[in-house]
Amino acid sequence: MWQDLQDCLFDAPFTVIAVAEEGRGAEQARPWIEQARPGYPCLIDSEHRVSALYGMVNVPQCVWIDEQGVIVRPPETAGSTDHFRKMDQATRTMAPEDVAARLAARTAYFQAVRDWVRTGKHALPADAARARLPVITGEMAQADALFRLGLHLRRLGQEDEAAECFAEASRLHPESWCIFRDAQVLEPSGFAGGAGFWERVNALGDKPFYKPPSF
């Protein structure tokens, strides 16, 4: 989907930079990247460094950065919606109207990106951008350190101790789906969508999984 954005803005001073938050490393992301054949930089972040730097808690989240390297829209959901929460769990399919609504939301978001690139529309003034920045707490910083330790230990094959690090990281930073999901044992499909994921999603109640961006 980001290739469409890159393609239609080919004549503008603009690039997508897609960062794969893959604690298991590049090989986990390779099939997806090779299938997408992206014409923009697609980077591998095996320690979730970008999420930590920008205070991101889910994927996909995006940041808009202007030509001077200034953040003009802090982290926000990049075109995804919560319609998946209504899917049929047995068949993992969504109702046609939900599929359509999700597509409409994504299309609207990418139109906003195009408007920003062409006209500057939707870029926030500094005070407004600052007001939307995530608040980094001591618990979140400790969680990031524990998560990084857990990833390192998992790579060394020390699964049990890694799991302890992940559990404590998730306890300290419960809003981070990145920490929770990359710590999971993956299904054969490679998806971290087991019962634990759905229990956690359902426990959100009225809170969003993908908070809609505000324009």
């Binding site: 980001w2 954005l5 503008a12 001073p13 603009f14 690039t15 997508v16 930079i17 897609a18 960062v19 794969a20 938050e21 893959e22 590049a26 986990q28 992301a29 390779r30 099939p31 997806w32 990247i33 090779e34 930089p41 697609c42 980077l43 591998i44 972040d45 460094r49 970008v50 999420s51 730097l53 920008y54 991101m56 994927v59 996909p60 989240q61 995006c62 940041v63 808009w64 950065i65 202007d66 030509e67 001077q68 390297g69 990049a78 990106v113 920003w116 690139v117 990145c178 999901r181 990359d182 999971q184 993956l186 490679g190 998806f191 971290a192």
Partner: peptide, 29 residues
């Protein structure tokens, strides 16, 4: 930040100054 692509080439975000950047995360999981 500086991160590698699949080929191992390291990209710095600051290499892209002068362009608007849509920085987005994703994951296979």
């Amino acid at each position: 930040f500086a991160l590698p692509d699949l080929a191992g080439k390291v990209h710095r975000l600051s290499d892209y100054r002068g362009q608007k950047v849509f920085l987005t995360t994703w994951a296979s999981w």
